[in-house]
Amino acid sequence: MKHLLSIADLNKSEAISILDTATELARVSDGAVKKLPTLRGRTIVNLFAEDSTRTRISFEAAAKRLSADVINFSAKGSSLSKGESLKDTAMTLQAMGADAVVIRHPASGAAQRLADSEWMSGSVVNAGDGTHEHPSQALLDAFTIRKHLGMGGSDLAGLSIAIVGDILHSRVARSNVLLLSMLGAKVTLVAPPTLLPVGIQNWPVTVSYDFDAVIPHVDVVMMLRVQQERMSDLFFPNAREYSRYFGLNGERMASMKSGAIVMHPGPMNRGLEISAEVADSARSVITEQVTNGVSVRMAILYVLLAGGALEVGSN
């Protein structure tokens, strides 16, 4: 595997091997060992053309724990804000000898463009491209679900997962739908019709407009952020109405199965899609998602960068 651009590029055994690698790496981070020499001498560039807190610092922490050299690069404060093209930026990174580029970009397909181009030779990791995909987030979500609810198996067979909210603009939802269904989970999307993309009937999911009917039957409720920055139209009448029908509050949480968990990829709009009471409750694994994110991203970097040029199995 050279790049991680999309969950659609992974097969089930590759996805499970990343999760298993992350499990071992998590054990390493839990213990006395904080730093591993594995990627010493490799340079990883975090190219963030869009704002991010969790993903960027998570990739940075992951790379540093594996002893890679990290260069952070964000649109603000770089020549990207002077209008430099992705091509020129990529060629600059190539000239500096970047072994991998972790890219977040507002345009869907930006990571794919970078990987397919001849502009640079390193690995490309998609850290979120427009409304397309966010594969490392899906992997860390699957990792968190497996850790809490996995029935000893390596996949998520038998689990029922609801993804709730702004599906239309959500790259997290796209990657999660692909990954969670590939791992055997039953995925239900809950959203107002205006926030569901065209062609949803071809996704491997069931769709519901009624949150209250879905919530008692699922093991995981994954809330999505309402992405106001991507909303140019009026998708729902007002925030209070959205919150009443599709927000997760204490009352709705009370109807969840025992043992069921609440997830959110962050950043949260407290009071809109999730109430503070729920976000800070014992069911919430939101901060744990962040912790697991570092282990999963270490696993991704390990799988992409630690080995030589040979393909797996050729030895």
Partner: peptide
Amino acid sequence: DITLFRDDLRMRPPRAIMPTKI
């Protein structure tokens, strides 16, 4: 498990990490 400490990682395809239990 010593996989992460090997000096020949770049000469081989990626290896699976085995459990370390101290």
